[in-house]
């Protein structure tokens, strides 16, 4: 029996957006911590750290997100963990975000003029204080716009988690579509919700970008 796509079906899809938001938020939080570590390793004076970070970034930038999800999802099983789409999706997306944020933030750290680090060093500030009080605050200002831009990519990327059976926005759309068979309406709704999540962020990113370029133009 084919159901009609009505108000109830619409609401079910809207409610599923919360899982997309939750997954994005957790992946972004994990990716921020990982990304900071990767960025710091990438600009480290220790060669081993630099090599590890570079390899990590290359692997995650050079493979599709879908494969990363598959590898974590099935890999967990091989290493003796129960298959859990939630955990697999979170880990895969957080690792993915770590690599991309790491590379974005490396660029931002390197964009801080070399003289800043030298001045801090000449004043006797060691690595931690010089990073924490001098370099990172300046890098953060440069980083805001590209970071928000990446967040938009990440939100859209969470749709791939539907393939490993994680019921977020896209997966809920597929389920409703199987019952109603109105693909255009269903996926139109899904796309519209993604747009409503991402568009304001894009606006914010663009605003910050212009504000930053105005601030640095001087």
């Amino acid at each position: 029996m084919i159901r009609v796509f009505g108000w109830n079906e619409f609401l079910v899809i809207v409610v599923a957006a919360q899982w997309t938001i939750a997954l994005s938020a957790i992946a972004f939080a994990g990716g921020s911590i990982g990304g900071l570590l990767i960025a710091l390793m990438r600009v480290s004076e220790v060669r081993a750290f630099r090599l590890f970070a570079t390899g990590f970034i290359r692997v995650f930038q050079g493979t599709p997100l879908l494969m990363q999800l598959f590898l974590v999802f099935f890999g967990m099983n091989i290493f003796g963990f129960a298959i859990n789409p939630w955990i697999a999706a979170t880990i895969a997306l957080a690792l993915h975000a770590s690599a991309f944020l790491g590379e974005i933030w490396r660029g931002c750290i390197e964009a801080v003029p070399k003289g800043q680090r030298e001045a801090a060093t000449a004043l006797g500030l060691r690595y931690y204080h010089s990073m924490r009080h001098v370099i990172l605050p300046q890098a953060t200002r440069i980083a805001v716009a590209p970071t928000v831009g990446f967040l938009v990519q990440l939100i859209k990327g969470t749709s791939l988690a539907s393939i490993i059976g994680f019921t977020e926005l896209t997966r809920q759309g597929q389920i409703i579509n199987n019952a109603t068979f109105s693909p255009f309406l269903v996926f139109g709704t899904v796309a519209a919700i993604y747009f409503l999540l991402c568009w304001p962020l894009s606006l914010v990113a663009r605003r910050m970008e212009t504000r930053f370029s105005r601030a640095t133009a001087r």
């Binding site: 003029p113 030298e118 001045a119 004043l123 500030l125 204080h129 009080h133 001098v134």
Partner: peptide, 27 residues
């Protein structure tokens, strides 16, 4: 040893006072 650079290298995100107090406090 104190050092003064050609390009000043003041910390642009800090006030003049904060520029002067950072190292004495942290070091």
């Amino acid at each position: 040893t104190g050092m003064v650079f050609q390009q000043f290298n003041l910390f642009p995100h800090m006030t003049v006072l904060e520029n002067c107090t950072l190292a004495p406090m942290k070091v």
